[in-house]
Design a protein around this nucleic acid. Structure first.
Lengths: 128, 128
DNA sequence: CCTACAATCTGTAGCCACTACAGATGCAAG
DNA sequence: CTTGCATCTGTAGTGGCTACAGATTGTAGG
C-alpha cells in the first residue's frame, strides 16, 4: 500500500509518517521504481502503536523505547515507562490546577463597575 | 541598570529578555555608546508583568494583548482574555485527567507474573 | 595607561513534534 | 499522449525559549 492509504488507515498525516521515518520511529519501507514508499500490514500496526502512544501523551523518545520493549516482550520495563509518564501527567494536572485556582481568584475579584484598580492587572504586576 | 541586573531583579534570563525585545514584548531600551542596553524601573515592571503572566500560563500573544489593555486601562477586556485562558486551562486539565485514567487502567491491568499478553502493549496496539 | 577579566553584544542553531509549503516527479485512466 | 492526482525531496515555520561562538565593551587593579 502507498503512503496515502496508510495515512487514511491509521489517521496519521502523510508528512508525519515521513517525519517518523526520518527520525527513526518507523522503518524505511521498500520503494517502487519511482521511489514511492510501499508499506505492509506490519508498518500499519507500528504506526497505530505510535498513534495510540501519542494520544496517551508519550514522547517520541518514550515511544521509541516502548516499541523496542514491545519487540523484546519486556513488559515490566514498559510498565516502568508508563508509570513514569503517569507521574508526569499527574504533575501537570497539579500545576494546571494551581493555575486554575489563581485565575479563578483573579477573575472573581474583578467585578464590573469597580472603579478602583483592576485586580487582574494588580496580580499580573506582582502586587497581588 | 544593565541587562544582568534586570535579569537578577526579575528572575528572567538575559537571553530571554533579549528575546522578548526581539519579538516586540519589551520596548527597546536606550543604549550606552558601546551598545549595552540600559533599563529603568519601567522596564523592570513590564518584565515582572510578563513573568507573572507566563507563570499563569498566558501565551506571549496574550501577554502582548494584556500589556496593551493594561496601558489603556481596559480591565473588562482583560477579564475576557483571562476567562478565555481559564477555559483553556480547564480543557487541558480535563484531557490530562482522561490520560491519567487511561494510564492508570493500563498499569493496573498489568500485574507481574501474568504470563499471557501484556495489557500495556495490547492497549498501545489498538486492541485495548 | 595598560592589562585582565567579567559582562555584554550579535547572530545562529537547537529543542519538540509536527505542519506547510514549493517545485519536481510518478503513475493510472481516458 | 494528455490530464490530473499522488507522491517525491527539501526547506522553513510554529512557540518559547536556550545555548552556544566569537566579537566587543566596561571596569578594577597595578
Amino acid at each position: 500500500m502507498l503512503i496515502g492509504k496508510l495515512a487514511a488507515e491509521t489517521g496519521i498525516h502523510i508528512e508525519t509518517i515521513r517525519y517518523y521515518e526520518r527520525v527513526g520511529l518507523l522503518a524505511s519501507p521498500p520503494r517502487t521504481r519511482g521511489r514511492h514508499r510501499v508499506y505492509d500490514e506490519h508498518h500499519s500496526q507500528r504506526l497505530t502503536f505510535i498513534r495510540r502512544s501519542r494520544e496517551l501523551g508519550f514522547s517520541l523518545d518514550d515511544i521509541r523505547t516502548l516499541l523496542d520493549l514491545s519487540d523484546r516482550k519486556q513488559d515490566c520495563a514498559a510498565r516502568k515507562v508508563t508509570l513514569r509518564h503517569l507521574d508526569d501527567v499527574r504533575g501537570k494536572i497539579a500545576s494546571l490546577k494551581r493555575l486554575e485556582k489563581a485565575l479563578e481568584n483573579m477573575t472573581e475579584a474583578c467585578t464590573p463597575g469597580d472603579q478602583k484598580s483592576c485586580p487582574i492587572f494588580d496580580a499580573l504586576s506582582g502586587r497581588g
